[in-house]
């Protein structure tokens, strides 16, 4: 295998053996190989294409250890990942009174940080004997994800991550028809006028995203959500706020399963240095 050749060559090079970066790299590689290879066997196969440029970088740094030259930056491969939450299909089928559609995008910064955004829309329906109304709304969530896995190379964007989000949802609630039964017989009935709503919430989340095949990623995330303005819903909380969940609860939990496609391009400076070798 190309991978084995590349590692062996590095070990027997005296310059590289003294280099701490290389040792860290090797340890990470071995750990990830042992721990993650059963889970991410598909991702493992891509290491073959990663080792070569990484080795070039290491050799260059070894030459400049004694000098005062600034170390060259590794090539910067931009990545924009766009996808959809396919778990919503299952949720929509299971809970017909809560219909939601959700899309996501993230952009890789240098290192292990990602700028992330999610947006979508949905509608809810309350149809009990004593309360009936409809809601609809749209939402956007903005935040960051930080991968806790070391990147094995510039083209390795597999990630196990933790992140945070700010969520904003706006929507409308239809007229609500209510009925309050009394022990005196009959019931008191009335109508709550329609209104619009705005919801703010924060989220903490964790999950994984793994490249299955040439830019196609799959992954999941689990989230805890905290509604900032639950007090504004005392009159009638929306039964379902798309992107958040039940409007009458100040804490909610959610699960997403994303299928994404990535667009990658080299920064102009990196393209000159590498000759598009990463693409």
């Amino acid at each position: 295998m190309r991978q084995e050749k590349a590692i062996s060559a590095s070990i027997f090079s005296p310059d590289l053996y003294m280099n701490s970066y290389f040792i860290k790299y090797l340890i990470c590689l071995l750990l990830l190989y042992g721990v993650w290879s059963p889970c991410f066997s598909v991702a493992q196969t891509r290491r073959d294409t990663v080792i070569a440029p990484a080795k070039d970088t290491i050799i260059a740094t070894a030459d400049t250890v004694s000098g005062k030259k600034k170390l060259p930056k590794p090539p910067y491969l931009h990545q924009l990942r766009i996808g959809a939450d396919i778990s919503r299909i299952a949720f929509n089928l299971m809970y017909t009174r809560k219909q939601a559609y959700e899309f996501q995008a993230d952009y890789a910064l240098r290192g292990k940080l990602y700028i992330a955004a999610e947006a979508g829309f949905g509608r809810g329906k309350v149809d009990y004997d004593n309360l009936k109304y409809d809601t609809d709304g749209t939402f956007i969530r903005l935040g960051v994800d930080n991968s806790i896995l070391d990147r094995l190379g510039e083209t390795d964007f597999d990630m196990a991550f933790i992140g945070a989000r700010y969520g904003l949802g706006i929507g409308n609630r239809s007229e609500a028809h209510y009925k309050v039964s009394t022990i005196f017989g009959g019931s008191a009935e009335g109508v709550i006028p329609a209104s619009s709503y705005t919801a703010h919430w924060g989220e903490i989340l964790g999950g994984i995203k793994v490249e299955l095949w040439k830019g196609i990623f799959a992954g999941w995330s689990a989230r805890a959500k905290f509604l900032f303005n639950s007090g504004s819903f005392k009159e009638l909380a929306p039964s379902f706020i798309p992107g958040y969940g039940p409007g009458d609860k100040s804490t909610a939990f959610d699960f997403n399963m994303y299928l994404s496609y990535t667009f990658r391009w080299l920064a102009p400076k990196s393209r000159k240095a590498t000759g598009d070798s990463l693409q």
Partner: peptide, 13 residues
């Protein structure tokens, strides 16, 4: 005074 309990329970007074 009308008081909202929850979506499942509706309103009470």
């Amino acid at each position: 005074v009308l008081h909202f309990v929850s979506n499942a329970c509706g309103y009470t007074y």
